[in-house]
Write a protein that binds this DNA or RNA. Structure first.
Lengths: 226, 226
DNA sequence: TTCAAAAATATTGTATGCAATATTGTATTA
DNA sequence: TAATACAATATTGCATACAATATTTTTGAA
């Protein structure tokens, strides 16, 4: 798992685990044994422990005292709350990006869209999901409000988790080019349209999930001995 | 500093430090030496370290690598962003509280108001500031959205910090009974008025601060040798 | 005396070791 | 054989020790 030679800081460890969760390489519910991670990253458990507390703070990992750390398994209710929160915050992000975005910012957005296109071309579904999340994180960063940026840096990885839980693996990952349309509207400084597109985008993501079905509780143990 | 006998969990340590910051017993900019905290709380540095990473995640403490942990000293810009964020989020909180609040929830709010009144009667300015912050945290909790609750649990202590930095100590802590008026409007299910009161309340807090003055940079070292 | 170099001290960063707890495997008994 | 108690193993929680880095104090020369 560790590719670099330099010793990893706890933030970097947390980031790598976050990426792995976003790409569904670490599925919701899986146990994260400290020693395994420690040897995987080539550091001591102390650092892993600190990384896990960070991730737990972000809600990506849940700590059960004396039991261990598990990748969080959000409930359908939490998923709904998450989308409510995103629909509350992301219009403000769009407004601020339109207000502040310079040419370089737009270039960053376009560059990100290209990465998404490339991942789609390759059919790399895991990367598509992670990049889709990171698009919104980039938008939040460009909005210039550090609190909103930090909030989105929590909500986006969690959204990926929720997609992992509630989406059918067969479904084509994300609404195709909605991100591109949002960027276009931003480039044209069309606030109303950009916000509208963003809200529809979020609705599409949520509606593609099956939050009403009983997938949420995970494995149905009762049904196993039939 | 440690009053209980049982060993403190990391969260409890973080909470106590948070309270101390909210009450301005730990002023912005002060260094938090791990060993001092460790002996104060009767635990090892390991736990303190984890508590500090939590607090740093919340923005209440800033970690300078190899230098140490310092109580954050927010800038005026960050203060403005914070209030922007609160004005974005708290109307939603009010809406949800009105939608969901049962009799017991309202009783909790009233009980909190009494605590505030008591602190005001005693002239305990520190407690007033902390309780004022915790009023908004309670509202967020009653709103039933865990993400918004968590966000407010970060923003409120930071607001206390900002008040510590930018408010004149002489000023009477907070607008007198605006919290009570908000609770009244909520009890009457008057959404528009409640939101209006909340927004005005937030404006009052922000305008009581001197975010435009150059208080922010802390001590004016240049002016000391004149 | 003043400045800079160097020693001494303080503090952080990390790994390791041990105790506490949980989980798994085994044996014993009804 | 099935259930339960007990032992073995695995894992977490925590403190401590040591290395790396920063800060302060002391020393010595200009």
């Amino acid at each position: 798992m560790d590719t670099s030679l330099a010793k990893l800081a706890i933030d970097e460890i947390a980031e790598r685990i976050t990426d792995a969760v976003m790409e569904h390489r670490l599925p919701p519910g899986i146990k994260l044994v400290e020693e395994k991670l420690a040897s995987a990253f080539g550091v001591s458990r102390t650092k892993i422990r600190q990384a896990l507390t960070l991730l737990a703070q972000d809600g990506l990992v849940t700590l059960h005292p004396n039991k261990g750390a598990y990748v969080t398994r959000p409930t359908a209710d939490e998923a709904r709350d998450l989308f409510v929160t995103r629909r509350l915050v992301e219009p403000e992000i769009v407004r601020n990006v339109i207000k502040r975005a310079c040419a370089d910012d737009l270039a960053q957005l376009r560059a990100h869209l290209e990465k998404e296109t490339e991942a789609r071309r390759l059919g790399d579904r895991r990367r598509i999901i992670r990049l889709s999340g990171q698009f919104h994180m980039l938008m939040a960063r460009l909005s210039g409000n550090s609190f909103i940026e930090k909030l989105m840096a929590e909500l986006c990885p969690l959204t990926c988790l929720i997609i992992a839980l509630f989406d059918e693996p067969q479904t084509p990952a994300c609404p195709e080019d909605e991100h591109a349309m949002i960027v276009d509207a931003i480039a044209e400084r069309d606030e109303e349209r950009a916000i509208d597109l963003m809200l529809h985008h979020l609705h599409h993501i949520e509606q593609a999930l099956h939050l009403d079905q009983q997938v949420e509780s995970g494995i149905h143990w009762e049904a196993l001995y039939g």
